[in-house]
Structure formats: C-alpha cells, structure tokens
Amino acid sequence: MQTRVLIAEDDVRQAEGVRRYLGAEGYEATVVPDGRAAIDAARRTRPDLLILDVMLPVVDGLDVCRVLRAESDLPILMLTARADENDLLLGLDLGADDYLTKPYSPRELMARVRTLLRRTGHRAAPGHHRYAVGTITVDPVRREVHRDGVPVPCTRGEFEVMATLAAEPGRVFTRQQLLQRTRGWESYPTDRTIDMHVMNLRRKLEDDPAQPRRLVTVYGVGYKLAAG
C-alpha cells in the first residue's frame, strides 16, 4: 500500500508541482484547496502525512493544525511564505512536526517528507523503480541519470524530461506533454524550453549530438527515448 500524502495548498500551480513530484517518488498524493477541505479529507482518508500551507482560504493553516492535532497524531509539515520567527514558533506550538519557508526547492521538500515519515514511524514510499533504456538508467527516487554506469548531471527540467521519456520508452511525447512535467520547476516554460532541455541532454548522452540515436526527434510531433 502506498504512503498517502495530503497537500493543502490553494496555489494551483504550486500544488500540482508538489503533487507530481511526490507521485514521481512513489507517494500517493491528493490536493485540497482550502482549510475546511483539508480537515474533512484528513478525517475521511487518514493520510500518512499532511503538507499544510499556512495561508489557506476558508480556514487558515494554523487553525487546521490546531483542529487536527487535537484529534490525532497525523504528521504535519507546514509551508509558509512568512519568515517571521513568531509565526514559525506558533505553528510548532500548535503541533506541527516540521516547518518549511517558501520559496523552497523540491529536493528540500522531499528530504523533509522522508525524514518526517521516518521519524514518526510511517513507512516511506514503497518500491524503488529504475527505468533502463539501452545503456541509460533513470532513477526517479534518487533523481539520478546514468549512462554506461556513469552519473550524468541534470538540471531539474532536464531530469523531468528524461524521467517522462524513460517511463515509456519508444512513446512519442509532444512538447506540450513534456512541458506539463517541467511546469512546476520552470519560471516561464515554453516549447523552446523543452527544445533546450533536449539539446543539452543530447550533449550529455549522445555519442554524436548532431545525429542523436537515443533522444530522437519525431518530426512534427515531438521526442522519444530509444535504446540507441
């Protein structure tokens, strides 16, 4: 059974980015847009962890934390744009297990999630799936790409492109589909962003980037990952 994470975040773009990132690491993630929905969903579904934004509509995150902590020991990771020390202390006093101030990196968020689940005795995401396509391997949990066993450094956007292609080798993805996977981590993504990621990845993965055999262009459609 997958570890279930409830995300209470009213920023649609940010919530979707966190949901995708958790999903890529093997967690079952659900998003709710306000505090009342967070309380209802936590009571109904009994998640293993709640990622809770402080500035929520209807019922704010601090009140959500107060209500749920009185009812259960649900692990709570609070997110806030507030940097004031009093706000941080108040959230912890109300029973939050950890606190993360925006802006934060997805890598830092996932490290906090794993640590909190371990500390509270909840099982981490099951299974450790790696994708192997020819001599390329992609590890979505460790967020690593290897070619011939050698690590290949990738930016966040490049990794999202590789993880998407490697999950379904041979399938052609349009630029728009790949764009959906990078949208949570890029400031102003466009079709050109995907082309740049692919160009950079070819430099790192292809014997001859000018004649790619792994990251293949399907003209008029998009890109696919082949065994080479």
Rank of each mutant, 00 (worst) to 15 (best):
D87P: 10
V113Q: 08
L52Q: 00
T101Q: 08
L49V: 03
V12R: 12
R147G: 07
E28L: 13
R44N: 13
P151V: 11
T120L: 05
R66V: 07
A83D: 12
H128W: 15
V113W: 03
R43V: 04
V59M: 13
V152P: 01
E25N: 11
T101E: 05
S105Y: 02
S72A: 15
P106Y: 02
R147Y: 09
E9L: 07
T30L: 14
R69Y: 07
T115L: 13
A24I: 09
R147Q: 13
S72W: 04
L116S: 06
A96F: 07
D148N: 15
P103M: 00
I7N: 00
T80C: 02
T135M: 07
V145L: 00
V59L: 13
G26S: 10
R46L: 10
H129W: 10
Y21K: 07
Y99S: 03
D84Q: 13
A15D: 01
M78V: 15
P33F: 05
V59Y: 04
N86T: 15
T115Q: 11
G61V: 01
A124E: 12
L90T: 15
L94Y: 09
V12K: 10
R43T: 03
D148L: 12
A70K: 14
G61C: 03
R107E: 08
L56R: 05
L22E: 01
P151E: 10
E28T: 10
R112P: 02
R118S: 10
T30W: 06
G35R: 02
E71R: 12
G121T: 09
G61E: 02
R82W: 05
L94V: 13
T30D: 10
R82Q: 13
E28A: 14
T115I: 08
L117I: 04
L77D: 03
G121Q: 10
